[in-house]
Simulated scan of single mutants.
Amino acid sequence: MKKHKRDTSSRAFDRGYRAGVSGRSVDFCPHAQEEQRQHWVSGWREGRVDQWDGLTGISGVHKMRVS
């Protein structure tokens, strides 16, 4: 059975979330296409909010997706 790739918008959001939680700047967004960039930045924003709320490390595991 073939493995289906996740859609690129979901992957961009997840990577942006991880960048936000780790405290990286929004300037490090790797996407040039507007749609993927929007998903990355919205994931980054959610990650930053979770970092500010203290959901890093073990307390933030429930927010991460299992791929």
Rank of each mutant, 00 (worst) to 15 (best):
G57K: 02
G23R: 13
V49D: 01
R24T: 06
G54S: 08
Q33L: 07
V21P: 13
Q51M: 04
D14N: 06
W44V: 05
V49I: 09
H39I: 02
R15Q: 12
V21L: 15
D7W: 07
K5W: 07
K2E: 04
M64C: 07
V41D: 05
T8G: 11
G23V: 10
S22Q: 14
S42R: 15
V41R: 12
V26Q: 14
V61W: 11
D50G: 08
S22E: 12
W44I: 03
W52P: 02
T56A: 06
I58K: 09
T8Q: 12
S25A: 14
G16A: 14
S25F: 14
C29R: 15
M64P: 05
S22F: 10
Q36P: 11
Y17W: 10
G23K: 11
Q51P: 00
V26F: 07
S10F: 06
M64S: 08
S10L: 05
E35M: 14
Q33C: 08
K2S: 02
L55Q: 11
G16N: 15
Q51G: 01
G23H: 12
D50T: 03
S25W: 13
W44E: 02
V21D: 12
R24S: 02
A32N: 04
G57A: 02
H62P: 06
K5G: 07
T56Q: 01
V26M: 10
S67Q: 15
R37S: 03
Q33M: 08
R48K: 01
K3G: 07
R11Q: 07
S10G: 05
F13K: 15
P30S: 01
D50A: 00
R24D: 08
A12S: 03
Q38A: 06
Y17T: 02
V49N: 07
S25N: 15
F28A: 14
A12K: 00
K63N: 02
R18F: 08
S9N: 05
G47Y: 12
V21S: 12
K63D: 01
Q33E: 05
A19E: 10
Q33W: 07
D27W: 08
D7R: 13
S10Y: 03
E46S: 02
S67D: 13
G43I: 03
D14E: 02
I58L: 07
L55V: 01
P30R: 09
E35Q: 14
Q38S: 12
W40A: 01
D7L: 10
V61C: 01
L55F: 09
W40R: 00
V41M: 00
G47D: 09
K2D: 00
V61I: 01
C29Q: 13
G47V: 08
R24N: 03
R65S: 04
A32S: 06
V66K: 13
S67R: 15
V21H: 12
